[in-house]
Design a binder for these strands. Structure first.
Lengths: 202, 202
DNA sequence: TGTCGGCCTTGACGAACGTCAAGGAGTTTG
DNA sequence: CAAACTCCTTGACGTTCGTCAAGGCCGACA
């Protein structure tokens, strides 16, 4: 992992990500830029390690990450993160406790990150900073609600079918055993589900 | 549902709930009290109805609620809410869109509620209001992360076993078919799981 | 007291999933 | 070029789940 000063493109990608939630004026953009770091994360690197501090939140300029929970030597893929969007081990970050998940780069990635003190500083600047933090937390929340609903409402086969219908780019970018994991099933089961679906459409 | 002016006990229960997240000073407490309403919700009432606006957020003084998603005539129990804690159809509330879930009182309940404009007013008072909103959103988020993790990591039988170990009061207060639903299985399967667990311990 | 309705259990059966094991295709590495 | 590795698939088998159906328990209520 290499830490750099952000380029203008990095900063504008970051601003675009934040702008999806609320307008970012010149002053806030300036403050953000001042504390931002660009990080180049090679494929396979753990940007956050389970059990260690979760110190940063980042905007993904390019690349792909997964959140993974490890226990007794086996991994569970909890979620994926890609541009344009955020990546962070949120639970640990907001409470400044140790990360409960690792976050691993699945492709060579480039992110713009802020430390916890930098974010606190942003909050301390006034209601606009707090507001941005709140809006992002709420948005992230709604995303997780969808995820939980998917697991509760649909059987494994339907979950995969819906992912295909949605045209998720993950299906092209991620090995199937991680998709299986994400859907809550084994790779063998996903393989059989795919075989069944092929038989039906042909 | 009967709407009343909050009693002092109602307000102090509300303050206690908020205090779990950050100190609430006299000024903020005053503003909160000014806009608060107490609502008596009889068992069986839908406090929020799926498809209609999600207008309020509330602190539970006493009672029990469940969030339920209805589709094609069958229901899925999404979560439970009880004192001391909050209840709201959060996704609809924060975005002021229609509720995606209904929220039903499972016991005769008493809550202290705030409307969306009241909360916005609280936010507009300065960083402390925004901060409180953000902290609550983050806390709610971590809870949902736990919920999703439970569904991904554990098989149905383990999910029930963990609920028993945790000593959840829900097991005493809620019919098993709702528990089954909450765990993502059918009532029949939960019944068999209970039978299996009894055989093992005896 | 008898009946009704809500809730839990049990049975039977088929379908889907998990596990263990083996094999094949494509890519990387020496 | 061959060997090693990663990833996906397929097979066999046992277990668990969902569904449909029936029956029992218990509190509510006339």
């Amino acid at each position: 992992m290499i830490v750099l000063s952000p380029t203008l493109e990095d900063l504008s990608a970051a601003q675009a990500a934040f702008s999806r939630f609320m307008p970012v004026d010149a002053e806030m953009f300036g403050t953000m830029s001042e504390f931002a770091q660009t990080v180049v994360v090679p494929k396979g690197t753990l940007w956050v390690e389970q059990g260690r501090p979760s110190t940063h939140v980042a905007v993904i300029v390019e690349g792909l990450f997964r959140a993974v929970y490890s226990s007794d030597g086996d991994d569970t893929t909890y979620g994926f993160y890609y541009a344009p969007g955020f990546v962070t081990e949120y639970a640990g970050f907001v409470r400044q406790t140790e990360a409960r998940l690792s976050i691993e780069a699945l492709e060579d990635s480039r992110i713009v990150q802020w430390s916890y003190p930098a974010i606190q500083h942003l909050y301390s600047l006034g209601p606009k900073g707090e507001r941005l933090g709140r809006l992002i937390a709420e948005e992230v929340f709604v995303g997780f609600m969808d995820r939980t609903m998917e697991l509760l409402l649909y059987a494994p086969e339907e979950r995969y079918a819906r992912m295909v219908e949605r045209g998720s780019s993950l299906l092209q970018r991620v090995p199937l055993y991680m998709i299986a994991d994400y859907l809550g099933i084994t790779p063998e089961s996903l393989s059989r589900i795919r075989a069944r679906m092929l038989r039906k459409t042909s």
